[in-house]
Each structure stands twice: as structure tokens, then as C-alpha cells.
């Protein structure tokens, strides 16, 4: 069978589909001081997956605010710097007006994912962390 670390080189999704892959990629991103990008990406996925059942509404609002505060509000943060201004305004509007929607972070997640695919992911595959692991 193909060893997991070879699968990680196939695509960003193959890497993020494996716990060890995530762990190693996060170590690399931490070294590059951009681990928040990965945390944000997973936070967006987790937010979208929240069940729409009764009583969850309060939790969703709280979580949307927490994601907004941690990753988007601070304009100097790595995630905030990489997301388009229009996308940030959209999320801010949703949070302020309490228009909480499972897809409200989708655009921002896509933007961060594109940057990881074009930039940090290829760098990771060439990094000492990955090469030593293999």
C-alpha cells in the first residue's frame, strides 16, 4: 500500500485528510508563523458542520463571533491579511446583524485554501520537516 506521506504529496486535501499529515503540516506552518491559516480552515469546516437543530442557535452565534474575533477582526493577523476586504466586510455584516448562516465563512475559507494550495503547501513538500519525515 502507498505510505501516507506519499499520499500527502498528491493534494492539499489528501494531506488534510490524515491526522499525521495535519500534525506535520501544522508544525511547518507554525515555524512559518502562519498556523492560524490551518486553524481557520478547520474552524470554517467545523462551523459549517454544526447541526441546525433547536437550541444550537446561541452556540452558532457565539462560535461565529469567536471565529470572527480570533481570525478576522485583527487586521494584522495572518488570516485577516490574506482575505479580501469585501469578504471580511461580508463576514462582519453577518456577525453584527446576527445573520448566522452555515455558509458565511465559505468564501473566506476558499481564499485561504487557495493561498495554502499555491504557497504554503508546495513549500511544505519541499521543507526539511517533510523531507526528514519521509
Amino acid at each position: 500500500p502507498t505510505p501516507p506521506y506519499l499520499k500527502w504529496a498528491e493534494s492539499l486535501h489528501s494531506l488534510l485528510d490524515d491526522q499525521d499529515g495535519i500534525h506535520l503540516f501544522r508544525m511547518f506552518l507554525k515555524q512559518e508563523e502562519c498556523a492560524d491559516m490551518l486553524d481557520f480552515w478547520f474552524a470554517c469546516s467545523g462551523f459549517r458542520k454544526l447541526e441546525a437543530n433547536e437550541g444550537n442557535e446561541e452556540k452558532k452565534v457565539k462560535l461565529a463571533k469567536a471565529i470572527y474575533k480570533k481570525f478576522i477582526l485583527d487586521n494584522n493577523g495572518i488570516v485577516s491579511r490574506q482575505i479580501k476586504p469585501a469578504t471580511k466586510s461580508f463576514i462582519k455584516d453577518c456577525v453584527m446583524k446576527l445573520h448566522i448562516d452555515p455558509a458565511m465563512f465559505d468564501q473566506a475559507q476558499t481564499e485561504i485554501q487557495t493561498i495554502m494550495e499555491d504557497n504554503t503547501y508546495p513549500l511544505f513538500l519541499k521543507s526539511d520537516i517533510y523531507l526528514e519525515y519521509t
Binding site: D17, Q19, D39, F42, G46, I67, K70
Partner: peptide, 20 residues
């Protein structure tokens, strides 16, 4: 009720794949 940080951390973990 969880603090914002706990909630965020749980959310991040919930989106990760389960152990092989």
C-alpha cells in the same frame, strides 16, 4: 457554557479526520 476559546478549539477538532 464553554468559553469562546473552548468552543473554537472544539469546532476545529470536530472538523479534523478521526484517527486511522
Amino acid at each position: 457554557m464553554d468559553s469562546e476559546d473552548d468552543l473554537l478549539q472544539k469546532c476545529i477538532t470536530s472538523a479534523m479526520p478521526k484517527q486511522r
